[in-house]
């Protein structure tokens, strides 16, 4: 036995034990309170969602407009053709060359339209013909010889988008000699 042990050893142990008990109970209490608080929080959230009160309302008018939109474009801005003599038959005056490398594309959201074509070249040396091949919408006109007067290329284009292949055919007579024609072709969407 240790004679040097303090005489208040036993009460001290008792006090320590009581203190630990108290701490445990406090923790249990806090834990329960926390769980209760969470339950109350979710309860009120649910209640609010279920019984949301309308305190006021407002409305406004939105105006949307779709204008008449008419689009026309070509797949490439340049077409070049040359008659070199290849395929020319001796004894025939007429020589031709064709190009179908480009397309015409359009979009129309209004009533029936047509597409016309014309050249800016007032006095071409050679004839330039144009045909709309396999239009996805509308009706292709018979092959036209381009002039400065707008001529129907496609008709009966309604509210649609579409495309067609542009088939150019250059026609030259040997008797016309050599030379170069530079056309600027204008495609116009017009009322039918």
């Amino acid at each position: 036995m240790n004679n040097n042990a303090p005489i208040f050893d036993i009460p001290m142990l008792h006090t320590k034990h009581c203190y630990q008990n108290l701490q445990l109970r406090r923790m249990i209490f806090l834990k329960r309170f926390f769980l209760f608080a969470i339950a109350v929080f979710f309860f009120f959230c649910g209640t609010e969602r279920t019984y949301a009160q309308v305190y006021g309302s407002a409305s406004h008018t939105i105006t949307v407009v779709v204008n008449t939109i008419t689009m026309v474009s070509v797949s490439s801005g340049t077409v070049s053709m040359t008659i070199t003599g290849t395929g020319v038959i001796a004894g025939q005056n007429q020589m031709t060359v064709a190009n179908s490398a480009t397309s015409l594309l359009w979009g129309v959201n209004s009533s029936l339209k047509k597409i016309t074509a014309q050249t800016n070249l007032v006095a071409p040396l050679f004839a330039m013909k144009l045909l709309a091949v396999s239009p996805t919408q509308g009706t292709a006109a018979p092959e036209i010889t381009l002039s400065t007067t707008a001529t129907d290329l496609l008709t009966n284009i309604g509210r649609s988008k579409g495309s067609c292949t542009l088939q150019y055919t250059g026609v030259a007579l040997a008797s016309q000699g050599t030379g170069t024609d530079s056309h600027t072709i204008t495609f116009t969407v017009a009322a039918q």
Binding site: V72, L125, S182, T184
Partner: peptide
Amino acid sequence: VTATQSVSLTV
């Protein structure tokens, strides 16, 4: 409502 294309023909 219009589109243009340059087309040249050389003989």
